[in-house]
């Protein structure tokens, strides 16, 4: 009679063997792998390739990298001019720097508005928490474009803010808030606030209130307890929320396009303009490659390190 633990080992071994021998398990992983490889992985190779070609007039508007020349020689032409252009023309670097700046400031404002909201939701009666959370999520489910559009009516010269201030006699002529950098900040903070509140709430609601009581018993005032207990414990939520706001905000197109002015330089808008207005696919592709290397790759690496740190 084998011992119970041996029995368990045998069971597990049998199960492992059966799992291994069953056909179909491969299909489960390979279907999404194939889809993503074809429609997500491959496009990035193509982007990298097109970023090295020249713009030509025709369809598609870029040159081939590999040519069979008339002499029968295989020619490979790599055109690094696009990347040189990104480096030399101030437009692109400025746009990238400005995007990072706008996104960081917006993330900070989101944090300043979102943190008290998340904290407040954890402090209300239990039955009120779900409805309050739903109210944070509800704007997210309505159209993003329409939420940005709502600000046009509020900010423009004869819009809501100007009218209210004028009828109060605070200003004499309409304020021109639309098409300014301020409007871009406002739009980004407004659109991405739910992404900050939700992860913050998730970590804050898991926090043990006994820790705050202990801090108070040990003579820590509420503000000190907030800085030394609540904030450090909610750090994972702060990081997650900040990434969820910062990363899409850097590449944002709709908000700077609709709310920003002609001098609002953001990299997502530059890419859009290169592609749709200038029809320069190779330059658009090289902007995408640069953005991938400077923004997406570091974030993915950071996430991987964090996951590894958490699992250890």
């Amino acid at each position: 009679m084998p011992s119970p633990s041996l029995n368990k080992v045998l069971q597990r071994a049998r199960r492992g063997l059966r799992q291994h021998l069953t056909p179909g398990r491969g299909a489960v992983a390979s279907l999404p792998l194939l889809w993503l490889g074809l429609f997500f992985g491959l496009p990035f190779l193509i982007i990298a390739r097109i970023s090295l070609s020249e713009v030509v007039i025709g369809l598609p508007p870029y040159s081939a990298l590999v040519d069979l020349a008339e002499s029968g020689m295989l020619q490979v032409r790599l055109n690094f001019a696009n990347f040189l252009l990104l480096w030399e023309d101030n437009l692109y670097l400025d746009a990238f720097a400005n995007s990072v700046h706008v996104a960081s400031v917006s993330t900070l404002i989101c944090l300043l508005i979102g943190y008290p909201m998340a904290l407040g939701i954890t402090r209300v009666r239990e039955s009120l928490r779900v409805p309050l959370l739903m109210l944070v999520i509800l704007p997210f489910w309505t159209s993003f474009l329409i939420r940005v559009y709502a600000w046009i009516g509020i900010l423009k010269g004869n819009g809501l803010i100007s009218n209210v201030l004028m009828s109060l006699g605070l200003i004499d002529e309409p304020l021109h808030l639309l098409h300014t950098e301020f409007a871009v900040y406002l739009g980004i903070v407004y659109a991405y606030l739910p992404f900050m509140v939700l992860p913050l709430y998730a970590t804050l609601s898991r926090m043990d209130n006994a820790l705050l009581e202990a801090a108070a018993d040990l003579g820590c005032r509420p503000l000190c307890a907030f800085w030394r207990v609540t904030v450090p414990l909610s750090l994972p939520g702060i990081i997650a929320g900040s990434l969820l706001v910062f990363v899409p905000a850097v590449g944002e197109f709709v908000i700077p396009d609709l709310l920003g002015g002609p001098d609002t330089l953001m990299i997502g808008k530059v890419l859009w303009t290169e592609f749709f207005n200038n029809r320069d696919w190779p330059v658009a592709a090289s902007v995408a490659v640069a953005l991938l290397a400077l923004l997406v790759a570091p974030v993915l690496l950071f996430e991987r390190f964090r996951e590894r740190g958490q699992s250890e």
């Binding site: 990434l243 590449g251 997502g268």
Partner: peptide, 20 residues
């Protein structure tokens, strides 16, 4: 490839798909 789309700006995803 599951993690990357979550942090990828829309403009890149759109351009990449179109070029494909």
């Amino acid at each position: 490839m599951i993690g990357a789309p979550l942090v990828m700006p829309d403009v890149i995803l759109g351009l990449a798909s179109l070029l494909l």
